[in-house]
Design a protein around this nucleic acid. Structure first.
Lengths: 245, 245
DNA sequence: CTGTCAATATGACATAGATCAAGGAGAGTC
DNA sequence: GACTCTCCTTGATCTATGTCATATTGACAG
């Protein structure tokens, strides 16, 4: 539909796992060279535009998607149509692996939030590698553990802290992954999602985020320019991200 | 400190796993008779009074506790001292197993909410059984999966639904586990925790729960007598437990 | 039977977010 | 350059829940 700048079907040069810049961040890294080569042969590379769905909640899992680049959101929609972004997945993360731990269908939908490149590995092939290398399963278990712990943290935060703290926490998470220093030596992040998606991540309405950003700017805590955030009062940010205010 | 009606140190008759009424609900059930006999020898039986702590968040895990009877609450206290009951564990559940999946310390504290009887199995012994019977690990993984899914559900509920829906959902969970029909054919549950603990489970203040119960009674949705709840309008309960009202 | 303590209830009030209704503002299209 | 869309902002108002201070109740101790 839109520009296909990232869709270059002919170009296969970066499709090999061994050359993938995200490989070190993946569970697959524990596979040896020969197994990685075999993975190359059975995987398929997928280009996703923002809004495209990888799988939907309720579907049974047919394979996993390893993120090479981009950003994937795991979304949950409840009976009343309320949508929450439960988790974000960045390059190196494999999404959809949970249905391999048990036989249950997907509880969340996965959708591309930015233009993303993914490698799809079908269920039988995943099973093959899991069997061939027990380490792989352990890695996925560790990943699952980390996800679950993080969700539990988010749960507790949602019950004990206000929107402001949760928002600042989220911004700090983005900063950890994507932040840098600008020419003034100030901490800066380019938030990879829309404001409306921030709202879905914090679990509030977009209007509330809008007003909060307003307040943070007049309080000179941080400055927003489009999706670029510059931290002007790091102390306040760190303090309020942990404390109920 | 209090009456020791459940503390009968001399009485060993019900200490055997094979005779434990909760055995069928445990992961340990997959062990054969001989292994269960060996488990009997290395476990120790613990009687816990309400308020007693099994382990605290931040501690490293030294073993697991299998609940024979009673009720255990997993509690998380945040930096500001806000306490949340993240999860309840009923007989048949083994608590503290998470630290066996990875090497991380406990993220929650575990405490007895009612008089409880538990069997403690030390880390080396757990390791021994895990090695001897791979099925045991699988069962714990399944359990972990279910816990994580439930926490994710709670998380979404906390973001999308009001106190009333979350409260009713909790009551229904209690009903599923402990409910029965009374002489009038009405659904009844004896809530196993204090109102203040209900508040911690729902993630609100005790005063709010107090007022909510008041409202539910005048709306003739349910009647409370001490900890006994009688459902008078099941339709309303089911509907509002799912819907944002 | 009275004092004490924990748990719960009640009332008055404060506030965080939701809701509803308009109004910009930027990107792609004609 | 005007059109339309989606995304975002802003203002007015409403409501759920928190807060704080003060009862009440029931269990147990002396």
């Amino acid at each position: 539909m839109k520009k296909d700048s990232f869709n270059m079907p002919g170009k296969k040069s970066t499709d090999s796992c061994m050359e993938c810049t995200s490989l070190p961040d993946t569970e697959w890294q524990c596979l040896g060279e020969s197994q990685l080569a075999s993975l190359d042969k059975c995987k398929s590379v997928i280009n996703c535009e923002p809004g495209e769905t990888l799988f939907s909640q309720g579907e049974k899992g047919n394979g996993v998607y390893c993120i090479k680049s981009g950003l994937i959101g795991l979304r949950r929609v409840d009976v009343n149509g309320n949508s929450v972004l439960v988790r974000l997945s960045t390059p190196g993360t494999t999404v959809g692996y949970r249905t391999f731990l048990t036989k249950s269908p997907h509880v969340n939908s996965a959708e591309a939030l930015t233009s993303s490149v993914l490698c799809y590995i079908s269920r039988p092939n995943v099973d093959k590698f899991l069997k061939a290398n027990p380490l792989l399963g352990e890695r996925f278990l560790q990943h699952f553990y980390d996800d679950a712990t993080e969700t539990e943290n988010d749960y507790v935060r949602s019950l004990t802290m206000g929107m402001k703290s949760r928002f600042l926490h989220l911004i700090l998470v983005f900063y950890e992954r994507f932040g840098y220093q600008n020419e003034n030596g100030n901490a800066v992040v380019d938030i990879p999602v829309k404001k409306g998606e921030i709202a879905e991540l914090v679990g509030v309405r977009p209007e509330s985020i809008s007003r909060l950003i307003d307040q943070l700017q007049t309080d000179e805590v941080m400055q927003f320019k489009d999706r670029r955030v510059e931290f002007t009062d790091i102390e306040a940010i760190l303090q309020q991200a942990g404390a109920t205010v």
